[in-house]
């Protein structure tokens, strides 16, 4: 059996020790060699800072709450439905939507790295990429939810989805009470990033003054 020669040689250790300097050194080298276009780096950063983020996923969830036909299509072929809305691309090529109910609460993780549905939720938060989350949430999801201040009823089963392939999972949180008659734009404001990963619930709307 051939073995992985990568182990014999770690050129990255030749870079400067300080992380910020290491990144700067590599970037300068790649620029000098013409392997990266500095304007392309700026465009990538701008995309994930201003164009792609949890507001995309929130739009999908709000529409699913507001429109049963859309919800049914989303649950049967999320990739197609979501790309029709213009949300497709890197780290979101294959999407499956999973719905929270009174019986089941879904949580998403990637124990092996940090797979995450970028076109719907943007770049993952630090805790999603942390060793603690990756190590623990598959074994003790309820204790991890307690770190988020969330306690589920014992009668509600937890399903943890470990993203080991290129399928990206989007949690459709339960529609909160007090949202009757709200339109898609208003519903969107209730959908948090964490509720679409499964470490939170959707916000309950503030009660209107009587």
């Amino acid at each position: 059996m051939p073995h992985d020669h990568h182990d014999d040689d770690h050129p990255h250790s030749l870079l400067p020790p300080d992380p910020a300097l290491r990144v700067r050194a590599l970037e300068t080298l790649l620029l000098r060699k013409g392997l990266i276009d500095p304007a392309a780096l700026d465009a990538i950063i701008d995309t994930y800072e201003t164009k792609i983020g949890p507001q995309n996923g929130a739009r999908v969830v709000a529409r699913a709450w507001a429109d049963d036909g859309f919800r049914a299509r989303l649950l049967s072929d999320a990739t197609e439905v979501i790309s029709e809305m213009g949300y497709y691309g890197r780290q979101g090529e294959h999407i499956v939507a999973v719905e929270n109910t009174d019986e089941t609460h879904n949580i998403v993780v990637c124990t092996l790295c940090s797979c995450y549905p970028w076109p719907l939720l943007g770049i993952p938060p630090s805790w999603y990429k942390s060793d603690a989350y990756r190590a623990r949430v598959v074994r003790e999801p309820r204790r991890v939810l307690a770190d988020f201040g969330l306690e589920l009823p014992a009668g509600q089963a937890v399903r943890v989805w470990d993203s080991t392939a290129e399928i990206r999972y989007l949690v459709i949180p339960q529609k909160p009470p007090g949202t009757e008659g709200m339109d898609e734009d208003a519903l969107m404001t209730l959908v948090t990033r964490d509720s679409m990963i499964g470490t939170g619930l959707a916000r309950v709307p503030a009660r209107a003054p009587e």
């Binding site: 910020a20 990144v23 994930y48 770049i123 630090s126």
Partner: peptide, 26 residues
Amino acid sequence: VVPEAEDAPLHAPEWHKRALAMTVAS
């Protein structure tokens, strides 16, 4: 697990975003 605010900045410190962009571009 230490949760972050929903609106916490994605890339602090600054070199994180350079590392991300360089990886995607490469």
